[in-house]
């Protein structure tokens, strides 16, 4: 602002000095010298005309084209990027789904394996049980046989013992058959 006032005051001062210079017959203030007005205007119009012509016909159009191309290109790229982004999201979703699927499948496999192993274990336990029962039965049978055998041999032993005892006590020998018949 200050500058503007300054420049305005300079303007007035210079205008005044120009007027003073003209009145006193000295050299005029150059920016106000009307002798050079025509050449200034003429050459200004010429040079500005050249500039305007070349710019409007050539260069600016080219710059505009470049910018438009770039804008189109960027728009395309942005579209492509957003398309790829949605694809990426899709892929990501797909991947997550696959992951959960795989996890579920793995869970299933684990469960199935566990069940089959359980069944196997149960089966072998049952088999072992059955085998053990069989063995126990066989052993029991043998015991029973042995016991009955032993029981059957008790008579003989008793007869032997009795014969020996009679011999010792009575001094008589008695046949085992006799004793047996007596005992029974």
């Amino acid at each position: 602002m200050i500058r503007t006032y300054l420049s305005l005051s300079v303007t007035t001062v210079s205008a005044a000095s120009a007027v003073a210079a003209e009145s006193s017959g000295e050299t005029t203030f150059p920016p106000f010298d009307p002798g050079y007005f025509s050449t200034q205007i003429f050459w200004l119009l010429i040079s500005f005309g050249i500039l305007y012509f070349v710019l409007s016909r050539g260069i600016l159009r080219r710059v505009g084209q470049i910018l438009e191309e770039r804008s189109d290109h960027i728009t395309d790229d942005l579209d492509k990027a957003s398309r790829m982004q949605s694809q990426a999201r899709e892929a990501q979703k797909h991947r997550e789904r696959a992951l959960t699927d795989a996890r579920a499948e793995a869970q299933g496999v684990v469960e199935a394996t566990r069940q089959s192993v359980d069944a196997e274990i149960k089966r072998s336990i049952a088999a072992a049980d059955a085998q053990a029962g069989e063995q126990a039965e066989i052993a029991e049978m043998r015991i029973r046989k042995m016991r009955s055998e032993a029981l059957s041999r008790i008579d003989e032993i008793a007869a032997d013992v009795a014969q020996a005892a009679i011999e010792k006590v009575a001094g008589k020998s008695v046949t085992v058959a006799r004793i047996k018949s007596v005992l029974n």
Binding site: Y36, S38, T39, Q40, F42, W43, S47, F48
Partner: peptide, 13 residues
């Protein structure tokens, strides 16, 4: 009209 080529014209060009 004076249409001389001056230093001003030179600077414009």
């Amino acid at each position: 009209y004076d249409l001389s080529f001056t230093n001003s014209s030179l600077m414009m060009l």
